[in-house]
Structures are given as C-alpha cells and as structure tokens.
C-alpha cells in the first residue's frame, strides 16, 4: 500500500539523482500495467546506466519510437510517477527523457 509517509521518505533520495545523464541499458514498453499506472499506458520503461555507472529505473517521456533502443542518451527529470493515492498525495519520482 502507498502511504504519504512512504512517499515522503522516498522523495528525500530522488533529488540526488535528478539531472543525471546516462544511456539506456534495458528497455520495454508496458501495455498492461498495475493499479495507478493505467492512465499512462502504454508507456516505455528503461533501466539507465548513469555516467557514474549507477543504474536507475524510470519511465521514458517526451520520446519517439526511434529512442527506444539500448545506448540512447537520456537525462533524469522529475515527474509524477503514478495516479495520486486516496490521501491525495502526489508521488513524484524519476523519469528520463532523451538527450537531444
């Protein structure tokens, strides 16, 4: 279950990985999501290897089909990550967009 406290705790770590550049290491496109993600579907999800070799998951936004491949250069951005919970707390998290 998603609680406001859980969202708050997680968000303390998110700022550390904002604005980081990296390359797509793994990718897929989700057509049948779980609860809280339905309105975004279909959406691409990538695992990015950052320049410091750290690996971070996130959805790929502002993208075209040609960007969905291993090796595409991306940058991490802050976005809403799921539909707001019943408490009305909006969960923000990391997504990536292609680096033009």
């Amino acid at each position: 279950m998603i609680s406001p406290v859980k969202i708050w705790r997680r968000q303390k770590d998110i700022r550390k990985i904002l604005g980081k550049k990296g390359k797509i290491f793994l990718w897929t496109k989700i057509f049948t999501p779980g609860t809280g993600f339905k309105k975004y579907a279909p959406y691409p999800v990538v695992l990015v290897e950052l320049e410091n070799n750290e690996k971070v998951y996130g959805q790929l936004v502002d993208q075209e089909q040609k960007d969905l491949k291993i090796g595409t250069k991306v940058i991490s951005v802050l976005r809403k990550v799921r539909t707001a919970s019943v408490d009305g707390v909006i969960a923000y998290g990391i997504k990536f967009k292609p680096l033009k």
Binding site: W27, K29, I30, T32, V45
Partner: peptide, 21 residues
C-alpha cells in the same frame, strides 16, 4: 523491488527487458 514498482514495471515488463536484451 520498490524502485521497479515505482517505475511502473510489472513482471512481464522485467522479463520483457531480459527478452529485448
């Protein structure tokens, strides 16, 4: 993992990543 859940990954999504690779 929590991070995989937050990115909207499902189990089909994780195996799909392996399949693409």
């Amino acid at each position: 993992s929590g991070e995989e859940q937050e990115a909207g990954l499902t189990f089909s999504g994780l195996y799909a990543m392996m399949a693409n690779f």
